[in-house]
């Protein structure tokens, strides 16, 4: 189990990580989600030993790793742009960690073959890494990181440089593969779709802190802060006046923000009146954008609706969640 205790990192005057506490259980896939610049890559690099924390401790089980060098931590990492060794073949890339660990040639070849089969690149041993496509390079990088059997695998936006269709497929492959191996992993992304597809737990970062951490359903149902809500794709965020009123009526007792989750909001025979301003057909449903008193809201519907139609909105009480406003609004 990985445990971080109040880890802070500074670059000059800039506080990049601010007292981060985090745990990753054995065999768990934790997804670090957040916008670029929130410190998630730095957190990963600090765990890897590539950055030195200004304060705080990093533990693996009971061993304090804070002062242990990167090459002695036994953690693996996959970078966004793969960072393959351009001067080596595919096989030599995958075997690199094994060579360092002193494995014999025969054992190495066997392990490399197994790994290439695992990532679906049988027969690629002799290829130069310069000739690989983006998806292939990504698989080689994964095989290389897995080869020395790391106790923790970190993946820093490994799919960000790939096109969308490929990304969707690889997310599923990756999830199955990590679970199949029982691999403890931290996966960094700014794409909440990837996060929900992969995560056992999600940690949402905001301004160098972990703003919310929990199982995907928990985080989705109750994001707690505006920044977290936006990071995981919520859009129906409304501000309440002093009496707790907004365009949808009275949703609270005082001024503040509320989230009306789009999975709760639905079209109804009666309720709050709204006008349809956008409709996109997607995967068997219609993603609607409606306008209520100058406020735009998102929801989805099974039946098609015409643009400009008047509709009524309804929602269960548990679809409304109070949010803490972010400092930067």
């Amino acid at each position: 189990m990985l445990r971080l205790e109040r880890v802070s990192v500074r670059f000059g005057q800039n506080q990049v990580l601010n007292q981060v506490d985090l745990t990753v259980a054995s065999g768990e896939v934790l997804v670090l989600l957040g916008p670029s610049g929130c410190g998630k890559s730095t957190l990963l690099r600090t765990i890897a030993g590539l950055e030195t924390p200004a304060a705080g401790q990093v533990f693996w089980e009971e061993q304090n790793l804070t002062a242990v060098a990167a090459h002695q931590r036994g953690f693996g990492m996959m970078f966004q742009d793969h960072a393959l060794f351009g001067h080596l073949s595919v096989a030599a890339n995958v075997a690199f960690g094994l060579r360092i660990a002193g494995w014999g040639v025969g054992q190495r070849q066997q392990k490399v073959a197994e790994l290439l089969e695992l990532v679906g690149l049988v027969g690629f041993e002799g290829r130069s890494v310069e000739t690989l496509s983006g998806g292939e390079a990504q698989r080689v990088a994964l095989a290389r990181s897995l080869a020395p059997d790391p106790r923790l695998l970190m993946l820093d936006e490994p799919l960000a440089s790939l096109d969308r269709a490929l990304r969707g497929r690889l997310v599923n492959d990756l999830g199955q593969l990590l679970r199949g191996l029982g691999q403890s992993a931290i996966y960094v992304t700014h794409d909440y779709g990837e996060a929900f597809a992969l995560a056992d737990r999600i940690a949402v970062m905001d301004g160098g802190r972990i703003a919310r951490c929990g199982r995907p359903v928990e985080v989705w149902a109750d994001p707690q802060t505006e920044a977290v809500a936006r990071s995981i794709g919520h859009q129906n965020i409304l501000s309440l006046d002093n009496q707790g009123h907004c365009v949808l009526g009275r949703l609270g007792g005082q001024a503040g923000l509320v989230l009306v989750r789009s999975d709760g909001l639905r079209l109804a025979p009666s309720g709050v009146g709204a006008r349809v301003v956008g409709s996109v057909f997607s995967q068997g449903r219609y993603d609607l954008q409606v306008e209520v008193g100058g406020q735009l809201l998102q929801l989805s519907a099974v039946e098609p609706v015409g643009l400009g139609d008047s509709v009524y909105l309804a929602w269960p009480d548990d679809a409304v969640v109070p949010l803490v406003a972010s400092a930067d609004g």
């Binding site: 990492m77 970078f79 060794f85 290389r144």
Partner: peptide, 24 residues
């Protein structure tokens, strides 16, 4: 990052230089 990758795969600084940096 390529050098960092080599370190994470267990290579000592000297090994990183000889096996990765110098060939590159």
């Amino acid at each position: 990052r390529v050098e960092e990758q080599a370190r994470l795969l267990g290579a000592r600084p000297g090994q990183v230089f000889l096996r990765v940096t110098l060939p590159r």
